[in-house]
Simulated assay, not measured.
Amino acid sequence: MKTKLLYHTNSFTYECTATVVAVDGNDIALDATVFYPGGGGQMADRGMISWENNHEQASVIALSKRQDVVWHTLDYPPPPVGTAVVGTIDWNFRYQMMRTHTALHILCGILWHEYGVQVTGGQMYPDRARMDFSMENLDKERINHIEKLVNEAIEADYPLRVYTLPREKAFAIPDLVRTKINLLPPDIEEVRIVEIVGLDLQADGGTHVNHTREVGGIMIMKTENKGRINKRVELVLTPPRTV
């Protein structure tokens, strides 16, 4: 049993039809889903699942990925195996996560190219995000420089490409994994690549926008020392420009 991950092929897909293939209490597995289950610091999607021509519906209150299957925990008794359902995510929340995740990739790329530092952790929230880096110096002058470079990259409107490569070919790319510890499972055969064309290239499983200008902009709100060579950067997004 394997769930087709529609968010992997198109992050802008917000609704899909699917079939229930397994039920475990209030958890259901579908043959396909638009719901991102969370991971890599990105929060799980929110939304609804409906069936019987929308006469029955339930909120998705939790998500988990077990091996190749995404399980959706409902707040209502689920339909039986074989039922056709419609899954609809909270689009505003998803798009905020897409913009935030893209902003963190830009930040990561800038710090790698400028200072050669690796990521030691990160987390996204509905209203902000933080990323930790293995670096010693993060004074005010450097913070201002980083913020300027990130916003310039956003404004440059680099396109994003998402594709997969065989593991051997992917790991032949220098610096593909930016985390200090390689978090990719050892048995993974294909690696999903997120490329900000002309700026950054990373292995990643989350959702992103199509062009950097969709991010809008960022402001670095604060930094913290999390160790002698571990610094935390916390940022918020600013709205995209209206044309």
Rank of each mutant, 00 (worst) to 15 (best):
L5N: 04
H8Q: 15
H8K: 15
N10T: 05
N10D: 15
N10K: 09
T13S: 13
T13G: 02
E15A: 13
T17M: 06
V23S: 06
G25K: 10
I28T: 07
D31S: 13
T33N: 01
V34S: 09
G40Y: 10
M43I: 14
D45L: 11
G47N: 13
M48K: 15
W51L: 10
N53I: 06
N53F: 12
N53T: 10
H55F: 13
A58P: 10
A58T: 12
V60I: 15
I61Y: 09
L63W: 11
S64A: 14
K65P: 09
K65F: 06
Q67W: 05
H72G: 10
T73V: 11
L74P: 03
L74Q: 06
D75H: 10
P77D: 15
P78Y: 05
P79Y: 13
P79I: 10
T88K: 15
D90Y: 08
Y95S: 02
Q96T: 12
Q96P: 00
Q96E: 04
M97S: 07
M98Y: 08
R99C: 11
T100G: 11
I106K: 06
G109Q: 04
G116C: 02
G116T: 01
V117D: 01
V119H: 00
M124L: 15
M124Q: 14
Y125Q: 05
D127T: 14
D127Y: 10
A129N: 11
M135G: 01
M135L: 14
E136G: 00
E136S: 10
D139M: 05
K140D: 11
H145N: 05
H145P: 00
K148S: 05
K148A: 07
N151C: 06
Y163N: 03
L165S: 01
P166Q: 09
R167T: 04
R167M: 07
E168I: 08
F171H: 06
A172C: 11
P174H: 03
D175L: 03
D175R: 12
L176Y: 02
V177D: 00
T179S: 12
I181T: 14
I181S: 12
N182C: 09
L184R: 06
P186M: 02
P186K: 14
V191H: 00
I193L: 03
E195W: 05
G198N: 02
D200P: 00
L201N: 05
A203M: 04
D204G: 01
G206F: 02
T207M: 07
N210D: 11
T212M: 05
T212L: 07
R213H: 14
R213W: 08
M219F: 08
I220E: 09
K222F: 12
T223A: 08
K226G: 01
G227A: 02
I229L: 04
V233D: 02
V233G: 01
V233T: 04
V233E: 00
E234G: 01
E234A: 08
L235Y: 13
L237K: 08
P239I: 07
P240E: 02
V243D: 09
